[in-house]
Design a protein around this nucleic acid. Structure first.
Lengths: 224, 224
DNA sequence: CATGGCAATAATATATGATATTTTACTTTT
DNA sequence: AAAAGTAAAATATCATATATTATTGCCATG
């Protein structure tokens, strides 16, 4: 039972991407192929294939002739990502509210329930269950837009969500009650098909998170 | 002079991508590694790296354990792509009009001039200079949004433009005078910083192209 | 003491060949 | 003609080899 063992390439891809997003591999880190071969138990060819994919998604930089490194971070980059996430996710949300059927509503309610549970359990300081919490956050945001029926839109959005997430993981803080209320408001607006409200709250939700993360980044900045 | 010979990987990437976009490799074609090795004079490793990159950009499909194929086409996919291109390019255009300086205006005027020249030379039926024409079209659309100052936005847009272009190349027709007028209108709106008009025209420009291509696709459809 | 240049070293890009698995094609059987 | 089983082709992965390119440390020169 469970997923039948996937290919080496696929698991390496997931592990590397995970480690970049969750900060195991810090921004700017040089990715030396020999070291990676040990750590990820994959051959050179497989690793290079994986790194090329991550490079084209923007999680890895591949300057010509000098290998790979974890894509660096910057406030400007985060702002761009947040901006794009607002643009795409709001658009997808509108489409989804227009198309979603009852099945979709069911999945949305379920996703929100799980997210709400863990959000209220965790509280504003606790960071022990971060991975699970972020998974549920992802599932809720995905559920919201899933009825947009555009594979292209969904796959672009997934990448942006992950890039945004990396910055959140970098500063390791959470906004607590405010975010909970925003999720609640989005659920309600979605169920009543109030696209305008839903979009407004979503935009605020993302921009507040941006603001929060930017402040935290400035706080932990290396410059004194 | 000229670009110093790039790496094998880079040139293979460009050639493969070009051949997919311009229909040398038809949608759905199986990409057999052995054959590619001959045709593109690259080793297996290099080819697989390239194909993985193209896969993550969506030009190639890579179903688990059964190699690679040129991503198939469908009217739905084209509609999604056109929709996304409108969304991103209009947003970028607005930002660009807000930020562009005189240098930017200069590059824009130059790009339009080249495009206009070749557009009026070619006429509605001629397809001999297609590649050059499309290059100038790209340069003009890029010039319009280049002052948006968002690397992330520009790189997403570049991929969408290429995907849209593949469909246009697939049906090999052009809209003639109408498109010329739209380009002209966009240039003027851009120079007068009239973002609303520019966006409206741009949206119409893309949607008209979509419509045109969809009709042509329906016409050459394999089903009788 | 700084600086420019050069050799030694490390790392990368590319290529080749080998093996285990998996698909696909084909043939035989019922 | 459907099912089953086998042969052939293709893929995924790996180990290794070579040429090219980047990096580092050292030395001479100013």
């Amino acid at each position: 039972m469970g997923a039948p063992s996937a290919t080496v390439g696929a698991t390496t891809y997931q592990r590397l991407k995970h480690d970049i997003i969750f900060g195991v591999l810090k921004p700017g880190t040089k990715l030396k192929l020999d070291a990676l071969r040990r750590d990820y138990a994959a051959s050179l060819s497989t690793l290079r294939e994986t790194l090329n994919r991550l490079a084209s998604e923007g999680f890895v930089d591949a300057p010509a002739q000098r290998g790979f490194l974890v894509t660096p971070v910057s406030p400007e980059d985060l702002e761009e990502i947040a901006h794009l996430r607002v643009l795409l996710e709001c658009d997808a949300l509108e489409l989804s509210l227009a198309n979603g059927d009852t099945e979709w509503e069911g999945r949305l309610v379920a996703a929100h329930h799980k997210l709400h549970r863990i959000e209220t359990q965790i509280g504003a300081g606790d960071l022990s269950k971060t991975e699970l919490w972020k998974r549920y956050d992802w599932e809720f945001h995905l559920a919201l837009i899933q009825a947009c029926h555009s594979r292209n839109l969904l796959s672009l959005h997934a990448i942006l969500y992950d890039k945004y997430l990396r910055y959140q993981m970098l500063v390791l803080t959470n906004r607590g009650a405010a975010a909970v209320a925003e999720h609640q408001a989005m659920l309600e607006a979605a169920l009543t098909r109030d696209a305008e409200t839903a979009k407004t709250v979503l935009k605020a939700h993302i921009m507040n998170g941006l603001d929060h993360t930017l402040r935290a980044m400035a706080g932990t900045d290396s410059k004194p």
